[in-house]
Amino acid sequence: MSEKTKLLPGDFAIWIFIFAELTVFAIYFVIYAVVRMQNVEMFNHFQLTLNRETGAINTILLITGSYFVVKSVDVIKQNKIKECYKFLYWALVCGCVFVVIKSYEFYMKFSVGIGLDTNTFYMFYLSLTLFHYFHVILGMAILLAIAIKAQRGSYDSNNYTGVESGASYWHMVDLVWIILFPLIYIIR
């Protein structure tokens, strides 16, 4: 206990929002696992129809996006403004590729007539991944707003709470996918 307790990075309100979001996803994950108990064969069968390669690539994209976001926070603390928004734009590139790949995955399912009412497995797969997909888009909108503000010189080594808040939200999106990917695509 010799170390002093550190404050949460970013704005406190964003952490309340992050925890509320995490709780909703947690409930969703647990319901998925419980419902699967009654439909193991069906869940195992339809899980094999998912594209694990795109799932894994998307995991790598989110992790890499998070890496760039960490770097952006790191450099703004050193007053390297240009580097900060450059890293944020790289994170946005990762987010864009994620969205393109995920949209392709949805298109492949919707184009063969698969929808929320196809079966219980697809209902969970589509609703959970769509819910997460919208969070990625929201995360990207936040990162874009911060990148533009950084480019306009609104942040520096004395004022970077906004960068930290956006970064924390983006990491939450990544954290949720870390559970979602093995749960929906892999574990059987």
């Binding site: 002093k4 307790t5 550190k6 990075p9 998070s66 870390i178 093995p182 892999i186 574990i187």
Partner: peptide
């Protein structure tokens, strides 16, 4: 698989979210 997910989660929370040392 879940142990791997926990390790990844801890790394994200601790190192990326910078929650090392918070309350």
């Amino acid at each position: 698989l879940l142990l791997t997910a926990v390790i990844k989660g801890v790394l994200i929370i601790r190192e990326f979210m910078e929650l090392k040392g918070v309350s």
